[in-house]
C-alpha cells in the first residue's frame, strides 16, 4: 500500500462526539474505514447521529475523542442548502470549483457541465436567491461533484431533486466510485443505490453497527444485464467486476454481468475503455432476479 493510498483512506478510530464539554454523547466508540472506491451507506433512525457521523467523515467537526486519519479531497452536500447567497448559480459554482482546486476557467466549464447534467442549465445565470428549493439543491449537488472529489459525503442529497436529477446523481455516484473515489451517503429511501453499496452501517444508541461488510452487495434494486465478449482468457476490468452484483462466464471470453442500473454507465465505460476494449454484445433489462450473488468472483 503506497502512502498516497493511505492518505486517501479515511479512518475513524474510537471516535466520539458530543456538543459541549459536558453534553451527552451523540456518538461514541466509532471505528470505520472508508477505502477508496467504496460506496458506504449509513442508516439509522431520525436524530440517531447520522448527520453528526457524516460531519466527522467530512472533517467538518473535530471528534471529542478518538482519532480521524487520512486526508482525501472531500466534498460535502448538506441536508438543506440555503439559497441566501449573493451569487448567480454559475458564479457560486465557479468559486466552489476553485476551492476544489480547479483553475477559474476549468471551474466555470465544470459548473456549466454539471448544471446541465442536472437539468439546471437554463438557471446558470439566475441569482441563487431566486432559485426554487429543487434548483438550489441541484447547485448543492453540483458544487460537490465539480472537483472530482476523492471522498463524497452526501447527507440526504437526493431530497428535493426531481426524478431525472435523482437518477443523474445515482449515475454520478457510480462514476465517482468507478474512478476510485469513495462515497458515503445517508438517504431516507431504502432503495437508493440498493445493491450497489459495498457496506451498510447503522447508527443506533450512539454507536455504529456494521450491518454488511465484504459480504457482497444485496440485490433489491433495479439491475441490467450486460453481455460482453473479449479474448478467451481476458480478465474483466476490476472496476466493472466491483460494480457488478453477479458475473458469469457464459462462453470462453464471454461474460454476463448483472449490474445495478445506476452503475451501468460506469461499467460500460470501464469495459469500453479497457486495453484491449471489450465488445458489448448487448445490454438488456433483467427479466428475473440474477443468479446467486455468491458467484461474484
Amino acid at each position: 500500500m503506497t502512502s498516497m493510498h493511505q492518505d486517501r483512506e479515511l479512518c475513524l478510530t474510537g471516535v466520539g462526539r458530543r456538543y459541549g464539554v459536558r453534553g451527552p454523547w451523540v456518538l461514541r466508540g466509532v471505528d470505520l474505514v472508508v477505502a477508496p472506491g467504496t460506496l458506504v451507506r449509513i442508516t439509522g433512525a431520525n436524530g440517531s447521529g447520522k448527520s453528526t457521523l457524516l460531519r466527522l467523515l467530512a472533517r467538518l467537526d473535530v471528534p471529542s475523542e478518538g482519532r480521524v486519519t487520512g486526508r482525501p479531497r472531500t466534498a460535502y452536500v448538506p441536508e438543506r442548502f440555503p439559497s441566501a447567497l449573493p451569487f448567480t448559480a454559475v458564479g457560486y459554482l465557479t468559486h466552489l470549483g476553485t476551492l476544489h482546486g480547479l483553475g477559474r476557467k476549468a471551474a466555470a466549464r465544470a459548473a456549466h457541465t454539471w448544471l446541465e447534467r442536472f437539468g439546471a442549465g437554463p438557471y446558470a445565470g439566475t441569482p441563487m436567491a431566486r432559485l426554487s428549493k429543487g434548483g438550489s439543491q441541484k447547485v448543492a449537488v453540483a458544487q460537490a461533484l465539480l472537483g472530482d472529489p476523492e471522498l463524497l459525503v452526501l447527507d440526504e442529497a437526493w431530497t428535493g431533486l426531481d426524478g431525472p436529477a435523482r437518477a443523474e446523481l445515482d449515475r454520478a455516484v457510480a462514476e465517482r466510485t468507478a474512478a476510485g473515489g469513495a462515497v458515503v451517503f445517508v438517504d431516507h429511501d431504502p432503495r437508493r443505490l440498493a445493491g450497489a453499496a459495498d457496506a451498510v452501517h447503522t447508527v443506533a444508541d450512539g454507536a455504529l453497527r456494521h450491518r454488511t461488510e465484504g459480504a457482497g452487495p444485496v440485490v433489491d434494486g433495479p439491475v441490467v444485464i450486460v453481455v460482453v465478449q473479449g479474448p478467451p482468457d481476458g480478465r474483466l476490468p476490476p472496476e466493472a467486476v466491483r460494480a457488478a452484483v453477479a458475473v458469469a462466464e457464459t462462453a470462453p471470453g464471454g461474460h454476463r454481468l448483472t449490474v445495478p442500473s445506476s452503475h451501468s454507465d460506469a461499467v460500460l465505460r470501464a469495459l469500453l475503455t479497457a486495453r484491449p476494449p471489450w465488445h458489448v454484445v448487448r445490454v438488456e433489462p433483467a427479466g428475473a432476479l440474477p443468479p446467486d450473488p455468491g458467484s461474484r468472483p
Binding site: A58, L60, D61, T74, Y76, P78, R80, L85, G147, V153
Partner: peptide, 16 residues
C-alpha cells in the same frame, strides 16, 4: 455572512 450549510461545503473542501 455565510449560511452554515454553505460554510460546511467550503469547509469540506478546504478545512474548517
Amino acid at each position: 455572512g455565510e449560511p452554515p450549510a454553505a460554510r460546511a461545503c467550503v469547509a469540506a473542501a478546504r478545512g474548517p
